[in-house]
Amino acid sequence: MTMQLVDRIERRRFVGREFLVWLWFESELFDATLSTKEHGSFGLWFERLLVLDAGKAEATRIKGATPAASREAKESLLRGKLPLSAGLHLVLDERESSFTLKAESMSVAGLKLPAVLGPEGDEGPAHSLAPRPAPRRRAKREGREEQEERESDLEREAFYERMHLTRDVESLLEALYREFLSLRLSDAWEGACVPMMRAWAAGQEGLDAEDYRDARARAVPARRRR
């Protein structure tokens, strides 16, 4: 990598933290039902772990079923901390996944996918009961080869299925990031989002979700649905 690219990457790592706090804000404001123009509605909420810090200051690690709902979480925001990583739960097209999103690298850890095909889940290795003309040893060898081939095929199928599901999760995160950037890089960010996010962090009740939704819709360009 060139030094210029490294510098550009490093100088904008904070945007990942802002993306995560924005996801948190939207998840609470819209009762864990988010949407993108590309995917429509889906469920997304914070769970298990939330880590916040402010660079040099000591990190706050909050564990639990709903870490973002704890008082300490909002208090950390008010002390100038932003999320570094968070456990997320996603429900998309009735399929559930959970993972940890690391804000500064936008990387995914511990991604648990819905159940997929696999050698263990299948009916087991193929054994033919039909008599074979070949000598016993040869038949045994051929049977073993067939079994290995079959296991290899199943392994490949499981791999393709898992990659497909992984891409679904990644595609949703990319769509969310795209919409976040549309908002973050528009006048609506300072005009509508930041004041509302400040009120939310301060625990102000009765935030007008519709006002925010309108501002968001104006900033995010229409996109063809899947």
């Binding site: 990598m1 690219l5 990457i9 100088r11 904008r12 904070f14 804000a103 500064e104 936008m106 990031y177």
Partner: peptide, 9 residues
């Protein structure tokens, strides 16, 4: 090129 907020943008 590693994924990061900048490269993903």
């Amino acid at each position: 090129v590693p994924e990061a907020p900048y490269t993903l943008a």
